[in-house]
Amino acid sequence: MSDPALLRSRAEALAAPLPALLAGAQHLARTVILGSHGRRRPGHGDEFWQYRPAMQGDAARSVDWRRSGRSDGHFVRQMEWQAAQSVMLWVDRSRSMAFASGDAPQKGQRAAEVALAVAILLDHGGERVGLSDHDLPPRTGALQLLRMAQALGAEGDAPEYGAPLAREMPSRSRALFVSDFMGDIAPVEGALLEAADRGIGGVLLHVLDRQEEAFPFDGRTIFTSMGGTIRHETLKAGDLRARYLDRLAERKERLRYLARVTGWQYSLHHTDGPASAALLWLYGALERHA
């Protein structure tokens, strides 16, 4: 994860051959890739969208006289809205995200690859992408993607748990938060409410390892946080299972609730599942916020 070129290569491999990753669904992949241009609403642009009946207040120059001449009414030629949008990504790089079990990748590795793959697809569609918490405001182009890969692949001191900040995000933009959301929920709630107040719509991607869902521990067990600052030893780990699962369920329901009241969308992704499924859902969810 410390090699930015490798991280970007893996993210591009996830984004580019979307048809193969979805069992050869080439038509669906083309729809997703072209969806960045398919905003399907009127506005400034060069691509024709549709004709609509002329209404009071329309300028004479906006009337398509050739089309109108084939009918009894006047019609206006609408162009498809193509203004670039800003999409800000927050990818949790805390120590908690380094956890992995079995053959599954680390939560942080999966989060970084999927988030960067989303950025690549959005950039291909002409959108501006950036990273919050890394002094990377939204821009387009290969250099921006390289900078994002370097930021996501960099190693350094990290807290046990991460928290997003909305104040670095442009008003009326879109946002993606990717995390295990295992830390204090208050900063997440604050960031979501602030974002909603500023007209920022977005998506929460909750990334968990299957072992975190199952809690397969019993007997004498020593639980240690990934950063080593939290340690708990018990002789009866099985007795903690019900309470742990209840709290995890409460956390997921709280995130769903916060998404509902702020107009965001929420999805849960397990690291042993296909990254392509998370990518497809994320891209579609962000497009719906366009």
Rank of each mutant, 00 (worst) to 15 (best):
D64L: 00
G125K: 12
P274H: 06
K236A: 15
A111P: 00
G284R: 10
T271S: 09
L146R: 15
L205N: 04
P4N: 05
A100Y: 02
G199V: 11
W65Y: 12
L204D: 13
G45Q: 13
R210P: 06
A186V: 07
L21P: 08
V203D: 02
Y257H: 15
L245R: 03
D123P: 05
G24R: 07
D133L: 10
E253T: 09
W281I: 04
R172L: 12
E212D: 06
A25N: 10
A154C: 03
G284H: 02
Q109D: 08
E233V: 13
R66V: 14
L165I: 10
A275I: 02
H270C: 03
T229C: 07
A104Q: 00
W49C: 01
A25F: 02
L34I: 10
Y257N: 09
S179H: 04
A15R: 15
L204C: 15
R128M: 03
W81Y: 12
M148H: 11
A214K: 07
L176Q: 03
G43T: 07
R30M: 13
I230R: 13
L34R: 14
Q26N: 12
V188T: 07
E155L: 06
E168Y: 11
A278M: 02
Q78M: 13
E12H: 15
Y266S: 11
Q50R: 13
L122H: 08
P216C: 05
H206N: 08
A111E: 00
R172Q: 04
Y161N: 12
G153F: 00
T221I: 15
I120T: 08
G57F: 07
A5H: 14
A237H: 07
P216E: 11
R254V: 02
Q265P: 01
A25S: 08
S2T: 05
E287Y: 09
V32N: 06
S94R: 05
I230Q: 11
L146I: 09
D209I: 00
E155N: 10
H124Q: 12
A149K: 05
R220C: 12
L145N: 06
L136G: 06
L282W: 01
A119L: 01
F223R: 13
G130C: 00
R52M: 04
G284K: 04
L7R: 08
A237R: 02
A277L: 00
G156E: 12
R243E: 11
A154V: 08
G73Y: 02
A54I: 00
T229D: 03
R172K: 07
L282Q: 03
A112F: 01
D218L: 06
H270G: 04
K252Q: 09
S68F: 07
R243G: 05
Q78I: 12
R66K: 09
R251Y: 08
Q109L: 12
S62P: 10
A275N: 06
R61A: 10
L143S: 14
A119C: 05
P170K: 08
L279K: 02
E160C: 07
R147F: 08
